[in-house]
Design a protein around this nucleic acid. Structure first.
Lengths: 340, 340
DNA sequence: CCTTGGCACTCGAAAGTTCCGAGTGCCAGT
DNA sequence: ACTGGCACTCGGAACTTTCGAGTGCCAAGG
């Protein structure tokens, strides 16, 4: 039904449309891409492609543009992910190498991804699901306030403030600090609940109320973190290149960028860093983003994804380059994180 | 030159134009606002106002719109900052009260500000300039890596990783931790340089290289932080309400939002929380943002501003309401921070 | 049987035209 | 000093015309 030449024509249409953002007709197509046939032949092929639902006409007498299905076929069968140039790779590593801490890695990654793809970039912070407790610090802040600091194995730091009714003995704090660390050090965050259960009983009855409230806050911090899933976004200015029809294309994306819950659903499950997820137009779970595609992948260790990163852009994006960039960035970030 | 009625007319023009976004003529003006005079009289006044540069005509036969100077006069002399309703105030306090840590306060503030002003909100993280060292933690991460955690008096936590060539003795770490805390506790970040200078000499010659590198990293963290000035941004989706002329109005703002250095200059110096800074159109330091106004103010303690927050929006915004909202949010955030 | 040149046809976009009325400035009258 | 009246301006909306890229179909040719 769809022989090789028809597929060639589809590929040419996609490439042309992505480059020009204008419906492409049979004449221009044979001019620009050297398919060895006449416009009339191409017309027949186009009719077949339209029949199959891969391309469509915006209005009766105009060229064709790819449908979501057309892009899908293009991505799956007709294109190969473009690898970056050596210069680009170098730029990536050197840009990421300057990061001073985990937050900085994420910030730099977003910026980088936005710059090289020229799209809106989204990076999920590494999840704490798999991480464990490195250290817990308890510090007094004024007479009746304590600051809890949680340091996790992947370098993330969380803090919580605990208020308490009476003044607290420094000795008690020191005691608490050492006990918490003994009990929790090396524990998975998800396992901490059981370990913490017995802690209050180790203290004198008069102190138990305070200790219990600290333990509760700590547990909250653990579960919050496991669930919360922070996200960084960048490159929103690239939305201005979407072309016109601002209301339909740009506004929904801007709105989605504000809602991290939506972004998480867009990014989808963290995949293995070698697998790219591409969601084209209506394939993504939000109707308002029907003219928008998502290219995402996991990052983290080779075997196990820590979190997801990706880009959001118009369906008529340059998939091979974008996919190459996303994949490359994910790899290099994984490398940086593995090193540190 | 400009009697009271002319000023009334200017006020009416600004209010009308802000409400409708359409040039306003003498007839409609008299209809909507009950100035007790005829359109002809208003026309004369308008001619005078135009002469003085407060209003202008987009084209010969259209109504007038305020110039930047017109808005300036309106803000300075013709309007009073609108106070929020009790319901709004309650909503603010309850929304901010749920914050779990400093980062969360900032995130919530941005969101809140964006929502009630329906503009793009910008919040600078509290500066460390005035803050002091609460605690320093040194934790081993694997055999050859140390994590430094700096906790400041205003609850901010910074982290740095230090690599080192040989394995490190736990005893040395404990020693280092206690000495650093002894030397630094309560010190202003800006004063820390001198205090830290003598620290390496307190250790055995063999350990001094390591200690020195830690001290250096710590100092870097101090100065970085004092200089860096992090920023949170939200409500970009409100840009879609700018009206058309996307390229001229929206694009530059989106671009500015990516550049935190630019945002800092836009926000300007932190002022006392009771003083609002309003920068209208060309008054702000970037030509591309000539159609954009900034409303900002400091927040922090009553006497001393910690940092700045504000909004960015089109020059034709509702200044009284916006200013009221910005001021109210700044006050409530200050209160929250003072409490914690 | 697939390909091609030819041809009549379609229809959106761009350019041109007309029309309307909100808005203006000015002046004479109260 | 204010007002009603009046001639004038000119941008925007609505309509018309023109243009040409693009199409589908068909008959002829390898």
């Amino acid at each position: 039904m769809l022989d090789d030449r028809k597929l060639d024509v589809l590929r040419a249409i996609v490439e042309d449309y992505v480059a020009t953002h204008e419906p492409v007709g049979s004449k221009t197509l044979v001019d620009r891409h050297n398919l060895g046939v006449s416009p009339a032949t191409v017309r027949n092929d186009m009719a077949a492609l339209e029949e199959e639902g891969y391309i469509t006409q915006p209005h009766t007498s105009a060229g064709r543009i790819p449908t979501d299905a057309g892009y899908r076929l293009f991505v799956d069968k007709l294109s190969t992910v473009k690898t970056l140039s050596i210069a680009e790779k170098k730029a990536i590593t050197s840009f990421l190498a300057g990061a001073v801490d985990l937050d900085d890695v994420v910030r730099r990654t977003v910026r980088l991804l936005a710059q090289i793809t020229r799209q809106v970039a989204i990076v999920q912070y590494p999840s704490l699901n798999r991480s464990s407790v490195r250290h817990i610090e308890v510090v007094t802040m004024g007479a009746r306030r304590l600051l809890l600091v949680l340091i996790t194995s992947n370098g993330r730091v969380e803090q919580r403030i605990v208020e308490h009714p009476h003044d607290v003995d420094e000795q008690l704090i020191a005691d608490l600090r050492s006990r918490l660390n003994t009990v929790l050090a090396g524990q998975r965050l998800t396992d901490a609940t059981t370990s913490l259960a017995g802690v209050p009983e180790l203290f004198a009855p008069g102190d138990r109320a305070l200790v219990a409230s600290i333990v509760t806050t700590l547990l909250e911090a653990f579960t919050d973190e496991v669930g919360e899933q922070r996200i960084a976004v960048g490159g929103a200015a690239n939305l201005t290149r979407y072309g016109d029809d601002f209301e339909r294309n740009v506004k929904p994306v801007l709105e989605a960028l504000e809602e991290h819950v939506i972004l998480l659903r867009l990014l989808g499950e963290a995949t293995n860093p070698t697998t790219l997820t591409v969601r084209i137009g209506h394939e993504n779970p939000f109707e308002e983003l029907a003219t928008t595609s998502v290219v995402a992948t996991g990052y983290g260790s080779k075997s196990e994804a820590l979190a997801t990163l990706g880009i959001v852009g118009p369906t008529h994006m340059d998939y091979p380059s974008t996919m190459g960039a996303v994949r490359a960035v994910a790899r290099y970030v994984s490398q940086i994180l593995a090193d540190s």
